[in-house]
C-alpha cells in the first residue's frame, strides 16, 4: 500500500443557486477526511455553502492530444450560438 494519501479534487458551491466549481485539490486518507480538509483549506474565508470531493483517480478526462477531433469541429458552427435573435428591451439583462 502506498504511504501517500490519495489526491482529491475539490468542488465548492459559493452561494445557493450557483453550481459547484472546481477550486483545487488536496490529499486525504478517505472521503470524509477530504471533506474536512477541504473545509479547512478552501472555505476559510467564507467561500462556500457546499463541498463536493471526488478522488482524482475517478475522474476521466479528455486527452490533450485529442483536442483536434473533439473541439475543433464546433469552432465553425456559429449558428449554434443564439446570437441571431433580437431581444426586446423589456426583457432587460439576460
Amino acid at each position: 500500500m502506498s504511504k501517500e494519501w490519495p489526491l482529491w479534487e475539490i468542488f465548492i458551491r459559493g452561494q445557493h443557486g450557483l453550481s459547484h466549481r472546481h477550486v483545487g485539490s488536496l490529499h486525504a486518507p478517505d472521503a470524509e477526511t477530504a471533506i474536512k480538509n477541504a473545509r479547512d483549506v478552501y472555505t476559510r474565508r467564507n467561500e462556500g455553502v457546499s463541498i463536493w470531493v471526488v478522488e482524482a483517480a475517478h475522474i476521466t478526462a479528455t486527452a490533450p492530444g485529442d483536442k483536434g477531433p473533439i473541439f475543433e469541429p464546433s469552432e465553425s458552427k456559429i449558428y449554434r450560438h443564439p446570437t441571431f435573435y433580437d431581444i426586446p428591451d423589456e426583457v432587460g439583462h439576460m
Binding site: W5, L26, K36, N37, D40, V41, R44
Partner: peptide, 11 residues
C-alpha cells in the same frame, strides 16, 4: 506533518 493538517490546526 502534512499541509492540510497544518492549515486545520491553525484554524
Amino acid at each position: 506533518p502534512v499541509l492540510e493538517e497544518d492549515i486545520a490546526l491553525a484554524n
